[in-house]
C-alpha cells in the first residue's frame, strides 16, 4: 500500500471529524433543551454534595485572610438597588423601621430590629466571595452568627432548611423576589452570619443592606442580599419555583459548593 492511497481516506477522515463535531454541537444543544437530559446531568449535584460532605469535616472552615488581602472595593453584582417601594422607604430612613422576621417551624417566632441583631454576639471574618461566573473578591464582614438567631427562636425538630426571603424583585414588574435556602449543617456553621457591616462600615445598599447572608462554603448566589424574612421549613418545594432559590429555579445547583 503506498502513501497516496491514504489521501482520499484522509480527506474522508477530516470530513467525518468535521461532521462529528457539527453533530456533537447540535446534539448537545438539542439535549440541553430536552427535559430528561438536564435532569440526568443534575444528578451530579447530589454526587458532588455527598462526596464533599463525606470528605470534608462537618464544620470545615473557609479560608480567612489578613486585612492586606482585602479587595480595594467589594464588587456589587446582581441587584444594586431593589426596585421595591417598601424597601426604598425603609432605606430612606436608614432602616430604622426594619424588622427581621424569623418564623416558620420554630417554637418562638421573633422579629429582630437592627439594634437587637447588633446586640447579639458578633463575628468578624475576612473571606473570599466566589461568584458562579468565575470572579472572586475578598471582603471583611461583621454580623451575627445565624446560630445565635436560631438559638433565640428554637427551631422545631421538623425544620430541615432555612429560607431567606429578600426585598429585591428579580422581574422588572416587581415580581419574583430573590430568595435562597440552606440546610441545617450550613445554618449552624460558625462562619454562617447575617452580615450588617462590610469593610468596617454599615453594609452598603449595593451589597445587600441592611442584612445579607454569608455562607462561606458555597458560591456567591447563595449569599442572599436584602434579607427581610427568615423561614424555617421542612421542604422548599412549595416556595416559588420549588428549587430552593431564585437562581436554582433558573437551573443553577441548590448545592453550590463547587
Amino acid at each position: 500500500m503506498n502513501s497516496h492511497a491514504f489521501h482520499p481516506r484522509r480527506r474522508l477522515f477530516f470530513r467525518t471529524l468535521a461532521a462529528a463535531g457539527a453533530v456533537l454541537v447540535a446534539g448537545c444543544d438539542k439535549l440541553s433543551r430536552t427535559e430528561w437530559f438536564p435532569k440526568l446531568l443534575s444528578n451530579t449535584e447530589i454526587l458532588t454534595r455527598k462526596a464533599q460532605r463525606a470528605i470534608l469535616p462537618r464544620k470545615s472552615m473557609a479560608q480567612e485572610f489578613p486585612e492586606s488581602e482585602r479587595s480595594p472595593e467589594f464588587r456589587s453584582n446582581g441587584t444594586a438597588m431593589p426596585e421595591n417601594p417598601q424597601y426604598k422607604a425603609l432605606a430612606s430612613s436608614g432602616f430604622a423601621a426594619y424588622g427581621l422576621e424569623v418564623g416558620g417551624l420554630v417554637e418562638k417566632p421573633v422579629i429582630f430590629s437592627l439594634e437587637e441583631l447588633r446586640a447579639l454576639p458578633s463575628r468578624t471574618q475576612i473571606t473570599r466571595h466566589d461568584c458562579v461566573e468565575g470572579w472572586s473578591a475578598i471582603g471583611k464582614w461583621k454580623g451575627v452568627p445565624l446560630m445565635a438567631v436560631l438559638e433565640a427562636v428554637r427551631p422545631s425538630a421538623a425544620a430541615r432548611y432555612v429560607v431567606f426571603h429578600c426585598a429585591d424583585p428579580m422581574e422588572s414588574d416587581g415580581s419574583s423576589p430573590y430568595y435562597e435556602s440552606i440546610d441545617m449543617d450550613d445554618a449552624y456553621h460558625p462562619q454562617t452570619i447575617l452580615a450588617y457591616e462590610l469593610n468596617d462600615k454599615a453594609l452598603p445598599i449595593a451589597n445587600g443592606a441592611p442584612i445579607r447572608l454569608r455562607v462561606e462554603r458555597q458560591l456567591g448566589y447563595k449569599h442572599a442580599k436584602y434579607v427581610m424574612r427568615i423561614e424555617l421549613v421542612d421542604s422548599f418545594e412549595k416556595i416559588a419555583g420549588g428549587k430552593g432559590g431564585y437562581w436554582e429555579d433558573q437551573g443553577y445547583e441548590w448545592y453550590a459548593g463547587i
Partner: peptide, 9 residues
Amino acid sequence: SPGFDTLWP
C-alpha cells in the same frame, strides 16, 4: 470549589 477549599484552609 469553595467547598473543597475548606478541606485544608
